[in-house]
Design a protein around this nucleic acid. Sequence first.
DNA 1: ATGGCCACCGAGGGTGGA
Length: 253
Amino acid sequence: MKIATWNVNSLKVRLPHLIDWLATEQPDALCLQELKCENKAFPLAEIEAAGYQAVFNGQKTYNGVAILSKLPAQDVQRDIPGFADEQKRIIAATIGDVRVISAYVVNGQAVGSEKYAYKLAWLEALTAWLKDELTQHPKLVLAGDYNIAPDDRDVHPDWKDELLVSAPERAAFQALLDLGLSDAFRLLEQPEKTFSWWDYRMMAFRRNFGLRIDHLLVSAPLVAGVTRCWVDKTPRKLERPSDHAPVIVELGN
DNA sequence: ATGGCCACCGAGGGTGGA
């Protein structure tokens, strides 16, 4: 089973890239973030024509998440239960026998800002919900744009901003791992300076000035089956790309 | 030369992203 995550930064603009990528990579499930698209504008016909089903949780202009899959999505959950939030950042569904969650973690804008406080509160609510979710679904993949670079290896050395690497953000990431989840990318040997996001400015992609902030966390019963995990930089090289590249995990079981 | 983008809404620049 092949599961991927991709922050497309506007589903409308990126739809041609998405359709091409689905045809090439043929993932069993793909978690999307930053749709920036209302549910009524979701391009379902194009995605179905590509051989995929879709469940989505969209909003106008900002945020928005979806799960595309070859098999039908079951027990669909939108948003974090009990956490009052206008922003559409979560959708969960069971694909086959795996619980798949597409998460778009709050960016946080600047350390110490109101949005930063919201980021930490949101992550706390996510963690509390997941604890319960894992008891019901032992085989679980939490996929998405975390807006956290977990380790110094995940950050280009010239990155000067505190956001995305601050100690409280990394502690929040660790709290997710402490639930019994593993960063699939780090289960295997990986090339140095592997990133999943590059700023549109400063020729950042060409210089590989990036961050690894898109992750696939897998629950304990899935760990032994992880055969491969990688970032696909191909779509980042196209005209009018998303600033994020897809990350893919292959599960052998 | 120390900043350079992109997408949104809406009709011009402000906002947000990371």
